[in-house]
Amino acid sequence: MRVGLFVTCLIDLMRPEIGFSAIKLIEQAGFEVVVPPAQTCCGQPAYNSGERAAARDLAEKMLREFEQFDHIVVPSGSCGGMIAAHYGDLFRDDPELMARYARLQGKVRELTDFLVNVAQVELPRGEFAGPVTYHDSCSGLRELGVKMQPRALLAQKGVAVTEMKDCEHCCGFGGTFSVKYGNISTAIVDEKCANIRASEAQTVVLGDLGCMLNIEGRLRRSGDTTTRVLHVAQVLAGDL
């Protein structure tokens, strides 16, 4: 079966190695992976900023590029949530687009959810030096139900997870929120970083690059140069 990988613009521009780790994991599960070369943004920044016309253009583009695949996998809860939960709002005045979207919507999966609930993978144990703590990204958790999937996969790899306090609380990124409300965002991420340190884990793992960049950036700016911040795909694929 063919999987269309929606890489996300952040991964493409900032950390393409995460995309390659995702491809490795999906291919090891026995699926053919296709990465449409013209893909761009899911439209979430425009949508969150009230730019509905721009968001709809991007949503239609994504629909054209991905509707032919058996599964659509996204290594990001926020982009996956945008596609799976909000495109209907953009297409609601167009019955033809809504019908096409309805066929696509059920095929959209966040990476760890796909590996657990569709591919039903059994990963070999690795040699990761743990423990780690896990940050639950808001959109993945609340819009896609991603909670136990990454933890189950980490357990398969033999990675011990030490839960931090308030692991489900926001890191303060929130896409354009961190730009519009910088002071509030900083206060939120400072609390998240304090909880990471209190867990005494040397690595924080997560499934959304926006959160990853926000947390890692704040840790480094506050003088923490040792705590590693890794995408779950990197840990599961052994690409460290």
Rank of each mutant, 00 (worst) to 15 (best):
M82A: 05
G130R: 02
D57W: 00
L90Y: 13
R56V: 06
V108T: 12
P95K: 05
L123D: 08
R64T: 13
I23H: 01
G43M: 01
H135R: 10
N48T: 06
P124A: 13
G140I: 11
A55N: 00
Y47P: 00
Y101P: 13
A102I: 06
E17T: 03
V121A: 04
L111K: 13
S139L: 05
R64G: 05
Y101K: 09
F66E: 09
G106L: 05
F31K: 03
A54R: 01
M148R: 14
S139I: 01
A84C: 00
T133Y: 14
H71I: 03
Q156Y: 09
E67W: 06
V34Q: 01
R52C: 00
V74E: 03
P95F: 10
E143W: 07
S139D: 13
Q105T: 00
E96W: 00
K61L: 06
P75W: 07
M148Q: 15
L104N: 06
G88Q: 10
R52F: 07
I83E: 05
T133P: 08
D136R: 13
A102N: 10
Q120G: 10
E143L: 15
I18R: 14
C79L: 01
S21Q: 04
D89C: 02
A85K: 15
A99T: 14
E32K: 11
G145N: 12
R100Y: 10
L153G: 08
F91M: 08
I23N: 00
G140E: 00
Y101W: 15
G77V: 09
L63I: 11
L97S: 08
F91Q: 12
Q156D: 07
R125G: 11
G77F: 06
E143Y: 12
A129Q: 15
A38F: 07
V108C: 15
P75M: 09
T112S: 07
L111Q: 10
H71P: 00
Q149P: 05
V73S: 07
I23P: 01
T133W: 14
A119G: 11
L97E: 02
A155D: 15
H86P: 01
